[in-house]
């Protein structure tokens, strides 16, 4: 799980070109959207694509998105539960 969290932080930075951010800057439990990272709804959709592509996990509605993207930990938890790319 911790590995997935670290991996996600790197992927978030790459996917969204957060040039001045390092994985250490992202608090695992802090609010991901609208928080200090400054992510908005379009960023969330960009991450939705990345997560579907890299983990085979679909997040296809706003309500689910709100829950899943609450924090990096919540996101990692959801991916861990639902991923189809590797057997759990």
């Amino acid at each position: 799980m911790e590995k997935l969290i670290q991996e996600l932080k790197t992927k978030i930075i790459d996917t969204l070109s957060l040039l001045d951010t390092t994985p250490e800057d992202i608090d695992t439990d802090a609010q991901l959207v609208g928080g200090q990272t400054g992510l908005d709804s379009i960023d969330v959709l960009e991450l939705v694509m990345m997560i579907e592509k890299d983990y085979g996990v679909k997040i296809d509605n706003k309500e689910l998105g709100m829950k899943v993207f609450a924090s990096v930990r919540a996101l990692a938890g959801y991916i861990h539960e639902n991923r189809t790319d590797i057997p759990r």
């Binding site: 379009i42 960023d43 959709l45 960009e46 939705v48 694509m49 579907e52 592509k53």
Partner: peptide
């Protein structure tokens, strides 16, 4: 490249 599976919303 993704065979029309993925795009960038941004």
């Amino acid at each position: 490249e993704s065979n029309e599976q993925f795009t960038s919303p941004t």
